[in-house]
């Protein structure tokens, strides 16, 4: 296991958003989190890298202990932000970059947890490698604010990968993208996970993208985990009706054996 979450509870002031969430993430696993708006997907993700601190419960990470030469389990609360930043990369939905920053410098930020004030030749090489890997070399010296949503998303993925983390957290990476960029971004994430042995947790609205790319799917409803397992066991008509209040057809995609969801209609309140 890369990551274990035990009985996490989180409230914003008096509103309970996460209500006893437990989950695990395996090595090289892509875990999709689905669920209606306001159900705690983003909150859960932010509890995993201490952007938010859960009031109850623990988040445990496998950390390689250099002295003992073995993996030890560590509570993220006991790690420094720098240590944590070397383990977990985070990719937000959109940028809040106000001032100009080149794509190159934006990706270079990913070296912050590894180096001090000066960046070395090695860091430059890492940035160049990421530019190549994500095929965004032509934008390298452009201002990040000039890029389209899809291009920006690739830059953020590159920055997170430059951190050299074990785990990537992605908060709705496809929500602002056209269908071509949605597929491109998801393919990139999937390929990198395979290539680098990284694990990823992806909060995602699109059930078909979740079905197609996730190794496992976590379905959340009002701050709790409603169902977890492989895509075809979680994304069933019954579950979708219970959680989303939507009647849906689920067929099997003959290409990849993954479930394919066609939403039919919203179920009226009195029918639920």
């Amino acid at each position: 296991m890369r990551l274990r979450v035990k009985d996490v509870e989180f409230s914003y002031r008096s509103v309970r958003v996460l209500n006893g969430v437990s989950m695990e993430l395996a090595e090289s696993e892509m875990l999709g989190i689905v669920g209606p708006n306001g159900t705690g997907k983003s909150t859960l993700i932010r509890c995993l890298n201490r952007i938010l601190s859960p009031q109850k419960g623990t988040v445990l990470l496998d950390v390689w202990d250099i002295k003992k030469i073995r993996l030890i389990v560590q509570d993220i609360k006991k790690m420094s932000l720098m240590e944590l930043a070397r383990k977990i990369g985070y990719i937000p939905q959109t940028t809040s970059q106000v001032f100009p920053a080149t794509v190159f410098d934006t990706i270079l930020m990913g070296r912050r947890p590894h180096v001090g004030w000066r960046s070395s030749e090695k860091d430059t090489e890492k940035v160049l490698e990421m530019l190549r890997l994500l095929n965004i070399e032509e934008f390298a010296m452009r201002d990040i604010n000039e890029l389209s949503g899809g291009q920006q998303q690739k830059v953020f993925i590159a920055r997170a990968l430059t951190q050299e983390p074990d785990i990537l957290l992605l908060d709705e990476p496809t929500s602002n993208l056209d269908i071509r960029h949605q597929l491109e971004v998801m393919d990139i994430i999937k390929n990198i996970i395979r290539k680098k042995g990284i694990s990823a947790i992806v909060a995602i609205h699109d059930l078909n993208l979740a079905a197609r790319y996730s190794d496992r799917v976590l379905m959340m409803n009002s701050g709790k985990i409603f169902a977890a397992g492989n895509p075809s066991s979680v994304l069933t008509p019954a579950n979708i009706r219970d959680v989303y209040g939507v009647e849906a057809d689920v067929t099997n995609n003959s290409d990849n054996g993954r479930p394919y969801i066609v939403p039919i209609r919203a179920v009226r309140e009195d029918e639920r």
Binding site: I51, L81, M82, S96, A101, R112, W117, A160, L169
Partner: peptide, 23 residues
Amino acid sequence: MWKSWDLNVIGAGDEIAQSLGVN
């Protein structure tokens, strides 16, 4: 000047900065 790189990272947003190890 010593804080200048942290300032760059904060420019990318508070959550990003924190995920890059900046308090």
